[in-house]
Simulated assay, not measured.
Amino acid sequence: MDVTFHRLAGNLYFTTAVRADGVTVMSPGYDRTSAIPHDLAHFVAEREFGMTRGFWGSVAAGALFTNMAVTSGRQKPHAAERSKRIIKAHADDIGLAEAVAGTIHDAVEQDLTPKEVMSGLRALWGVISPAPLPIGDKEIEAVTAALRREAGRWSAVPVDQGLTLNWPLRAEHVPVPPSGKARTGRRSRKARHQR
């Protein structure tokens, strides 16, 4: 999946994603005060941490969030149902991705030290899970360095141009049961009598 972050005047932006199924989706950007788009921070954090079920991984799998719109391509049958199932199945991971991306975004925007970032992540992680935080200082340094690199590329993008990044992680597809069929695999009584 290719994701393009389109720069508008000021700190405004929007994103488009061309999924593997040929469908292009658009999402508006909401954070007008940040130099780095929040969606770019999401992309980098999820990519670097291998989060296949976060926001961008869900989009790659076929999720269409309420603020998104299809701008080109033809969706497969049952796309709306599949989207709902993906969002439901990935809900916890989407929440975790939001927390991690927000923390990494703040770290780069505010030039925080890895120790300050770890403190913030530990506090968030304590709410999410009783298990130890599976991220250490080295991972934080690598992810914040990756976001700084992409932020540098973003800052060079002129208004009305875009920065395109490839989503390298495999999409986790959520199956959608065929509609209109009995659970036993046999045709319904009505269908059998309509020959």
Rank of each mutant, 00 (worst) to 15 (best):
M1Q: 03
A9G: 14
N11A: 06
Y13T: 06
F14V: 03
A20P: 08
D21H: 02
D21A: 06
G22R: 04
T24C: 05
T24G: 01
M26Y: 04
G29M: 08
R32V: 11
R32N: 07
I36F: 05
T52R: 13
F55P: 00
F55A: 02
W56G: 00
S58Y: 02
V59F: 00
A60L: 07
G62D: 03
N67D: 14
M68A: 13
M68D: 06
V70C: 04
T71N: 04
S72Q: 11
S72V: 09
Q75T: 12
Q75E: 13
K76F: 05
P77Y: 01
K84C: 02
I87P: 03
A91F: 15
A91I: 13
D92N: 14
I94Q: 05
G95V: 10
A99K: 11
G102E: 10
T103N: 12
T103M: 15
H105N: 13
A107W: 03
D111K: 14
D111S: 14
P114I: 05
K115C: 02
G120M: 11
A123M: 14
G126W: 01
I128L: 15
G136P: 07
K138E: 14
V143G: 02
T144M: 11
A145F: 06
R148W: 04
R149S: 11
A151V: 08
G152A: 15
R153C: 10
A156D: 14
V157K: 10
V157L: 10
L165S: 03
P168H: 07
P168M: 09
L169V: 08
L169C: 05
H173Q: 13
V174K: 05
S179M: 13
K181N: 09
A182Y: 08
R187C: 12
S188K: 14
K190I: 09
R195Q: 12
